[in-house]
Every structure is written in C-alpha cells, then in structure tokens.
C-alpha cells in the first residue's frame, strides 16, 4: 500500500518537474494566432479597419473582438482566408470600412508640393522621402497605397495612381471554356 503510494507520488513529482521544465523551456513567445492572421493581412497599414495598423487588427481578431470583414485592401480573398483560418462564417466586406479597390500608388505632383513634411509623418511605412521646404517624393516600391498621405496634404498634391499591368506583372488568364449552343435534330 505504502509502496504503491510512494510510486505514484514519485511519478507525480517527476512528471510535474518535466512539465514545469517544458513550460519554461518551450514557452511560445507572442500569440501564434495573431502572427498567422497578420500573415494573411495585406500590410497596407491603412487603418480602414478601425485599428491603427494590421497587427492591432490581427490581435483584435485573435481575441475575437473584431470581425473578419473589415479589411478592404485584403478584399474578398482575404476574408475567405481569414474565415478558413479562424473557422468563422464568410461574410462580405463591411461597407462602413470601405470598398475593395485596385492597388494604387501615391504620386506627389512636384509642381504643387510645398515641402511641409505632413505626408512624411503620415506615411506608416516611411515610403516618402523629403525634408522641410524640400520637395518630397514617394518611393514607389515601398508604397502600400494606404492613402493616409492624401488627406493630410494641405495643397492636395498627392494623387493615387492605379498600378497598370506591365509585361512582368501580366498573368496568364484562367482558361475559359467556350460554350457553344448544341442543335438537336
């Protein structure tokens, strides 16, 4: 009887020690779900979802505090991926957060720019270079098309120019099967 108790107690102590060690050693830093959601989001950092960036929105979704249909740049495809990942029902993009638009890049009109640096401060990804009273310009490859620089410009010199398809970004289209009417005799 005593031997059995001792054996069980010993087992409990050893296993407890192992589990305790594992809990410290293999501790997961951060929330892996947030990371996974963040990987799906387009990283536009535009704030149209109502959060100050993609990561905060991802964290809110992970906690169940935000809906999956608040990201216009991610579009329908993004919502479907989020629905898949989180096991939630698909729903169309919520109209109050905006509409899905083709990707556009900010372009500064050099004639009108007065060098006020307001757009530089507004850009969430540091894609605008310039200095006070010096002309500003957008680094096209880094621009996410978030439009945050557009409203702050006091002289309205920033235009959103849709990205045109070129030879390198052109994609083969999905093969379409031509449907022909069948005449029956």
């Amino acid at each position: 009887m005593l031997a059995a108790l001792l054996v069980m107690a010993l087992g409990a102590v050893v296993l407890g020690a192992v589990l305790g060690f594992a809990a410290v050693k293999f501790r997961v830093e951060g929330d892996p779900l947030t990371e996974k959601i963040d990987a799906i989001l387009p990283q536009t950092q535009c704030g149209q979802c109502g959060f100050p960036g993609c990561k905060p929105y991802a964290a809110a979704m992970a906690k169940g505090e935000a809906d999956i249909n608040q990201c216009p740049p991610g579009g329908d495809e993004g919502i479907r991926k989020l629905a898949d990942l989180l096991g939630r029902e698909y729903k169309p993009l919520s109209a109050e957060h905006g509409v899905e638009k083709p990707k556009a890049l900010a372009v500064i009109d050099e004639q009108r720019c007065i060098g006020c640096t307001l757009c530089i401060q507004a850009c969430p990804v540091d894609a605008i270079v310039g200095a006070a009273k010096q002309m500003h310009t957008v680094i096209a490859v880094q621009c996410t098309g978030c439009e945050l620089c557009v409203p702050v410009c006091p002289v309205d010199c920033i235009d959103m120019v849709p990205v045109a398809e070129n030879i390198t970004t052109w994609k083969w289209k999905y093969p379409v099967v031509a449907i022909k009417p069948v005449t029956t005799h």
């Binding site: 963040d38 990283q43 993609c54």
Partner: peptide
C-alpha cells in the same frame, strides 16, 4: 507585404 510589415 513582408517588406511593408518590416517598414511599419
């Protein structure tokens, strides 16, 4: 997107 995330 990864680059934008890094910049952000």
């Amino acid at each position: 997107a990864d680059q934008a995330r890094e910049q952000y």
